[in-house]
Every structure is written in C-alpha cells, then in structure tokens.
C-alpha cells in the first residue's frame, strides 16, 4: 500500500490550505513540508502574497511548534500563514474557553467597597449598591438594580453589553469605553429594564432592553429549538 503524503496542499479561492497528517512524527512532517513547499511553488511568477491556512487535524501543536511552522512557511517567498487550526485543545485551554463562555450566576448583594469579577458572563441576582463594582469578561445581566459600577467586556470585548432591571449606575464601562451618570438624575425617571452597549461612534449608549434583540443577535445561544 502506497503511503499517503504527510502534507497535502489544496488550493482554494482564498489561498492555500495545508492538511498536515496527524500520525507521522513532527520531524518527518517538518522535513516534508519544507521540501514540498520548496519544490512546488518556486515557479510562482506573480509576487502576490498567498494566504495559507494550516490544518493539523488531531495533532496538538505547542505554541513553539506553531511558531516554527509559521517561520518555515514564511521563508517561502510569497506565502504567509493566515491561521493554524487544530482539532485538539489542551485541558487548560478547554477549561478557559468553557469559563469564558458560561454564564456565572451569583445571588448576593454587591455592597460598597466590594468587587465581583467573573471570567464569563455574569448573571447577578441582587443589587449593585453605590460604591460596589461588578466586572465580567463577557456580558453583565443584573436582575436587581445597578447603582454602582458595572464593567462588561473587561478583557476588551467591545460587543459586551450590560443589562439591568433598574439601571441607575454611577458608571458604565464596556471594554475600554466608559460613561458616567449625569450629575442630576430626575428621581421620577424609573430606568427599568434597560441595557447599555457600545455604538458605532464608540460611545456607550443606554437603551431599552429589547433593542439588544437586533443589535446583538449573538446573545442567543439556543440552537435549533421550536
């Protein structure tokens, strides 16, 4: 039986896709990649950069190995690595990913001087009192009233939103934007069921909750359903 090549090159309209075999040794793979790229694409005349997507299948590539492959491919005049994809994640990465994606429910009051920080989305059952702070890498949903500071997308996610049953914050922060309450709030204004997000001008806007349905359709995580 003829051995399948360790490196298969496929051309797509967006550039090249390299399928790397996931059973051979890493050394073999590197050697074959080097020779294949040198042989086949030397003749390319037009000097346009060709983006390359690398798919390593079920092989785990450490950050160093990824860098090595990137360097190897970049040496070939007009190739540039667009992405390296693998089916494999380390447990650590998977945990982190899971953490970032889950909604963390907390039932408590966040009082003056307290800071509550979560890695994913925050669902707070309780109030954030003046002087208290809630932070989340993702979105913040507050079932009670927000009277302190809320910082959504605190790791730099501009798409993050803040929603509260009663929106009377001292400050709103999303990603690196921030916004403070007007100095004089009319007490008759209720500010019930509102949300905050970053608009096209990179300003934090407070709006009624329902506007998120159109602005952030990605908030829906239900797949399929009836």
């Amino acid at each position: 039986m003829k051995k399948r090549p360790n490196v298969t090159i496929k051309g797509t309209k967006d550039g090249l896709t390299l399928h790397l075999d996931d059973l051979c040794s890493y050394q073999d793979l590197k050697r074959e990649l080097d020779s294949k790229l040198s042989a086949g694409y030397r003749a390319h005349e037009d000097r346009q950069l060709i983006p390359v997507r690398v798919q390593s299948g079920n092989r785990y590539l450490s950050p160093e190995q990824k860098e090595e492959l990137r360097a190897l491919i970049r040496q070939k005049k007009n190739l540039v690595v667009d992405s390296i994809e693998s089916n494999v994640l380390t447990l650590e990465e998977a945990d982190k990913l899971h953490e970032e994606r889950q909604i963390i429910t907390v039932a408590r009051m966040v009082r003056s001087g307290q800071i509550l920080e979560v890695p994913g989305d925050l669902l707070l059952i309780g109030d954030v009192n003046p002087g208290g702070t809630v932070m989340a890498a993702g979105n913040i949903f507050i079932m009670g009233s927000l009277k302190g500071i809320a910082h959504a997308g605190c790791k730099g996610d501009d798409q993050a939103v803040i929603a509260a049953s009663s929106m009377k914050p001292a400050q709103l922060r999303i990603s690196d934007c921030y916004n403070r309450a007007p100095d004089h709030i009319k007490s008759e204004e209720k500010h019930e069921m509102e949300c905050a997000y970053i608009d096209q001008n990179r300003h934090i806007v407070v709006d009624r909750l329902q506007s998120l349905i159109h602005l952030r359709p990605d908030l829906t995580r239900l797949e399929g359903g009836r």
Partner: peptide, 9 residues
C-alpha cells in the same frame, strides 16, 4: 453608604 460597606464586611 458606610452602613452598606460595614454590612458587606
């Protein structure tokens, strides 16, 4: 405000 802080503690 201070009572809130103390209650938290």
């Amino acid at each position: 405000r201070d009572a809130d802080r103390i209650i938290g503690l």
